[in-house]
């Protein structure tokens, strides 16, 4: 009995390790395969045909990819700038001032995060079709995508900045007031400098979300008609055996870009911690 028990316990212990190892393999297996295949010499993306950099060469000469990349970067930069501004202001407002219907407004500010993305995407599609176009006529797809991205990013920036603001020792702002600073001076000289790391992480999050977004972009352009960001470009390549191999290269590079962004985020976080 005792031996059986001990045996069972040992089994649980080794299963714990085994599961953990398997999960990590599971997480990195497809990424590894993807990168490997991006160096394939085959004419087809899904077939291995020996090592080559041909896919990368083709990628860099592809006009459609370049255009999609440009669109992605423009939308991400613009939506990040706007969402960071709006989100930070909202966070400050929610945490530092009082207003009527505050609770309702708070719920409204959080909703874009919690409702399924597809619902928000559908709502934007209908809004553009039923309100924006009838009122303003033809609207450029880039603008509709931008509006969509800002809308979900605002909430994320707000959450990140607000969390830091809540942790911020209130007495720091009081000390500044006590030393004669006006509320505006307090904001400029104390609150904002202390919030900078949080605002930067919020912005980075917004940027990543925008680059990554599929649902809102897809619906905001009613199915990607003409205007393509990188994810839309990837989606539109009917995935069959004949996918051109430079898609592997593109996917690998997108992966690398994400990694670079995270590295940047971590670096900034490290720096923020050091200066505290």
């Amino acid at each position: 009995m005792g031996r059986l028990r001990r045996g069972l316990d040992a089994l649980i212990g080794s299963m714990l390790v085994l599961d953990t190892v398997l999960v990590y393999i599971f997480l990195y297996l497809p990424i590894g395969v993807l990168i490997l295949y991006s160096f394939s010499a085959s004419r087809y993306a899904l077939v291995w045909g020996g090592f080559s950099l041909e896919a990368y060469r083709r990628l860099f000469t592809d006009r459609d990819v370049a255009l999609a990349l440009l669109n992605s970067v423009i939308v991400a930069s613009a939506s990040t700038a706007l969402a960071t501004l709006l989100g930070t202001m909202l966070a400050l407002a929610l945490e530092r001032t009082r207003i009527r219907f505050q609770q309702g407004i708070e719920v409204l500010a959080y909703l874009p995060i919690v409702i399924p993305e597809i619902v928000m995407a559908v709502g934007l599609l209908l809004f553009f079709a039923q309100v924006l176009r009838p009122v303003f006529g033809a609207v450029s797809p880039m603008l509709t995508v931008l509006i969509g991205h800002v809308t979900f990013s605002v909430s994320y920036v707000m959450v990140v900045v607000r969390a830091r603001l809540r942790d911020l020792d209130r007495s720091l702002e009081e000390a500044a007031l006590d030393l004669g600073a006006t509320p505006w001076q307090v904001l400029r000289k104390v609150t904002l400098p202390l919030l900078t790391p949080a605002i930067m992480s919020g912005a980075l999050l917004a940027f990543t979300l925008s680059l990554d977004d599929f649902y809102v972009t897809y619906f905001s352009t009613t199915g990607g008609s003409g205007f393509k960001t990188l994810p839309l470009y990837l989606y539109a390549l009917q995935w069959r055996a004949a996918v051109p191999p430079h898609v592997n290269a593109l996917a690998s590079l997108m992966l690398l870009a994400s990694l670079a962004l995270i590295a940047l985020a971590l670096l900034m976080q490290r720096k923020a911690q050091l200066s505290r």
Binding site: L85, A93, T97, V119, G123, L124, F127
Partner: peptide, 20 residues
Amino acid sequence: LWWPGLLWLLLFFAIPVTII
């Protein structure tokens, strides 16, 4: 501080959901 963000969310989130 309130108005810009609030207006945005009303216009591009609350109204779309209402339209649904």
